[in-house]
């Protein structure tokens, strides 16, 4: 992680990367789907996103980790995963949801929120990484001293990591599935485990990292248990937010086990597993 010296120049570093990120849209490999489509010419890959994003939400929120709130959350539409249980499925699966808001306007609103007591500015989605050029524009327009959070599905590529390096104080990253079969079935994403682990290890080296896992009904043994074990062994002491608020949103009904909330017994077992691995839980 680049420390204090970074903040004097973060906006300039981000600004200096914008042109290259825009050019990279012509052969998009921002996430591990590695589509290679020309988004500048109207081609679309798995995420269906065009060259520029829409914003489906920009407001001060308090639902995230206590150390981050209040946060000015900027949510970009579109995502490269297809999680059937997505809580913002209508916006995450549709990059045309929401409205076009220039980066400068978002930065102005973020600055007002910071002046009004917000502690951080959070970029999220959908998945913000699929909109890298715009992400860089926002960072370039924000004050250097603002504490920035990237909320991500950790499915980015080595290309996106190069563009993002050193720009965010905190990576708040999902580790949703404990095995590739569940990832394929519930989010239509191949090779999930290797990708997410690579991203988490990288993020931990260059920023503060909070790993989130949403406990899903019927997936404590197959998903949470291996995630907990891996985190304990490979990222000891990392902050882990074990989230219990699953609800059967969007298209969760496609999967019989996802048609309800997490039973009390499974929630308790999930907490036991966290304790067994001595995870550093945050709320």
């Amino acid at each position: 992680m680049i420390r204090s010296g970074r903040w004097e120049r973060r906006s300039a570093v981000a600004a200096g990367r914008i042109a290259a990120a825009r050019a990279a849209l012509a052969d998009c490999r921002f996430c591990a789907h590695d589509c290679g489509v020309n988004r500048l010419a109207g081609e679309v890959g798995v995420c269906r996103a065009g060259a520029g994003p829409r914003v489906h939400l920009a407001q001060v929120e308090v639902a995230d980790e206590l150390e981050l709130i209040p946060t000015f959350a900027i949510a970009l539409s579109g995502c490269d995963l297809r999680c059937d249980f997505c809580i913002t499925g209508a916006q995450s699966w549709n990059p045309l949801a929401g409205e076009i808001i220039p980066a400068a306007e978002l930065a102005t609103r973020a600055e007002a929120a910071l002046a009004g007591g917000a502690r951080t500015v959070m970029l999220l989605g959908g998945e913000p990484t699929i909109h890298l050029p715009f992400l860089l524009e926002v960072v370039a327009a924000l004050p250097d001293e603002a504490k920035l959070v990237l909320k991500t599905n950790a499915h980015g590529s080595v290309v996106s990591r190069a563009f993002l390096h050193g720009l965010f104080d905190v990576w708040c990253a999902d580790y949703k599935f404990g095995n590739d079969a569940c990832a394929e079935r519930l989010a239509r994403v191949p090779n999930y485990t290797e990708t997410v682990r690579e991203n988490l290890l990288w993020a931990a080296r260059q920023s503060d990292l909070i790993v989130r896992h949403l406990v899903m009904p019927g997936h404590v043994a197959c998903c949470w248990a291996p995630v907990a074990e891996w985190l304990a062994l490979h990222l000891p002491g990392v902050k882990v937010n074990l989230r219990s608020g699953f609800w059967p949103a969007w298209q969760a009904r496609r999967h019989p086990e996802l048609r309800g909330t997490v039973p009390d017994g499974e929630a308790a077992r999930a907490r036991e597993i966290a304790a067994e691995w001595d995870l550093n839980l945050v709320v």
Binding site: A58, Q59, V60, E61, V62, A63, A73, I87, G245, W247
Partner: peptide, 25 residues
Amino acid sequence: RALVSEILILPDGRVLGHSLTRAFT
């Protein structure tokens, strides 16, 4: 601009939410 929060109230009275704003909290 409207602020947006979403909640789900369960039969047992528990409330699940996301995108919680200060006012809604």
